[in-house]
Design a protein around this nucleic acid. Sequence first.
DNA 1: GCAGTTTGCGATGCCAAAAG
DNA 2: CTTTTGGCATCGCAAACTGC
Length: 408
Amino acid sequence: MGETDGEQFSLRWNNFHNNLTAGFHALLQEEDLVDVTLAAGGQFVHAHKIVLSVCSPYFKELFKVNPCKHPIVILKDVGHKELVAILQFMYQGEVNVQQEDLATFLKTAELLQIKGLTENDSPATNTPPSVPDTSETTPASRTTQPSLPEPPVVQSEDTPVHPYKRMRSETPAPSSTSVSSPCTVNEDTGGVEIVEMSKPKIEPVDYESDLEEVGRLPSHDDPLAQLLGGESSSHSHQDSAQGTVPIFASIPGLSQDSGSSQDGGQDIARYLRSPKGAHQLVHNGYIYTRDRIFRDTDFWRCCENNRLRCRGRCKTVCGLVTVTAEHNHMPQNEKIRLKAFMADVKERLAKGEESADEIFASLPSDILETYDMSSLKQSLMRSHRLLRVREIFAKKPARSVQLPFVQT
DNA sequence: GCAGTTTGCGATGCCAAAAG
DNA sequence: CTTTTGGCATCGCAAACTGC
């Protein structure tokens, strides 16, 4: 390295920014190398994750926590027109917007945290040099504090840790819509199972923590209750029975009502991992275990199919949940909630940063009142110890456990 | 209180049959 | 023939039990 002390030449491409801008725009126009599908207003737009990430910390974070090859991001309550305009702004650095559409456009841009269009556009961050400051389009009405957008659920078929005998077909989805993007199979575990399920432990979907700020979903103290897709046990599962429901999330603030989540968010679905690592789906307060994959359809069956002889089933095609058979029992929100809590407790126990007493003391009072925590605590502590012992033995070199060969 | 053993049940995979 | 549903055997985890 020290040999490079000689005279250096600065090579500058004067047309660099223009070329980059034109290149990105061309890629967008030709839908070349696109790796994300944005759905808004019933229509779909393809884009590039890298461009969205550069122009929006919101998208950046979204793609970081969902390392799916080709996610489909369904932006509820965002119009197709606004989305296209925002994309044009991101790719070209400028866009023409009708005056009557300006307010909606800017509000959408704020919620999506589009750099150059939002007030909290961090100057310290790497603002794209080619994106001009659009302060001239900044109206006085843009003084509202943008609420943190609820992250849309990135529909992904992510992180299969365990070997499955049958892999999902990658044939394009025969969707009734104009989805031309694949039903992505992301076989990359990526070590991010914390997002959905960590490899050794059960872990809830992590982006629920962001959902808490929305208030549309249950805002219990527990960071896990949202797994249920709503907490009300009084909900009627018939609401979505035999209906197709997209896995989606709304962008709050654009619409004060609950949008198409008529039943209070009950149609939010979440992917989980079972304690054994299998894919699970939580929908309308029911847990489904993936039964099989056929073509581009995942078939799920109620996890109570054995115990309660429940016939509840559903299927997902490109993230669209279709309930195909009714359950013979009520939604098991409380059960799911408890399981989620126990998974959380186990995770914290495993971290060893808190004592068991501290962890249990931090649980919501209703959980503590409902369940016999002393026995639960004892049981968890025991299984935790057991786990540690197994880990220790698993780490031992093989020769240390080899027994002398005895010929019989 | 801890460690070892037993037992119950949930999870999983596979197959057959029904339906379209 | 393809898709969907019903059934069940098996495995393994975790709770419960027992003894020290």
